[in-house]
Design a protein around this nucleic acid. Structure first.
Length: 120
DNA sequence: AACTTGACGAGGG
DNA sequence: CCCCTCGCCAAGT
């Protein structure tokens, strides 16, 4: 499985589609959940084409709870604006509290054993 | 094939 | 908080 295969990309999009309104995931978290073959960088690469895949791409942030910066294809701050409309609050530095907004798929939450080994 | 550049992340200073 | 280094993996040049 690699980024050139549709199935590989679909796994990323299908997971992002599950993120509830007002919640977020990080690139690294998505890579861990999807498992073997996925890394934060490849997830980011797949996400650059998410706008045309009908997925809530705005709900994916970096590990610090901030919107990604190298995207010149859309107006700066659009992502943050969209998330604010979902109720997420950002501080002056453009960062939100992941402890408050991060979403965990079934089996990967803070109460699951896997969490202690993968998300400590 | 070499080198650069990312929608990344962790660790140090 | 900022900056840098490294590890990471794929694309563009």
């Amino acid at each position: 499985m690699n980024v050139n295969e549709k199935a590989y990309r679909e796994r990323v999009y299908n997971l992002v589609k599950q993120i509830p309104r007002g919640k977020v995931m990080t690139y690294g978290q998505i890579a861990i959940v999807l498992g073997e073959g996925y890394t934060p960088r490849t997830v980011g690469y797949v996400m650059h084409a998410a706008e045309t895949e009908n997925v809530p791409w705005q709900r994916v942030l970096n590990s610090q709870g901030k919107c990604s910066t190298g995207r010149l294809t859309i107006p700066i701050n659009l992502q943050q604006t969209m998330l604010e409309q979902e109720g997420i609050v950002f501080n002056a530095g453009g960062k939100c509290k992941l402890s408050e907004y991060q979403w965990f798929p079934e089996g990967f939450g803070p109460d699951d054993d896997i969490q202690t080994t993968l998300f400590d």
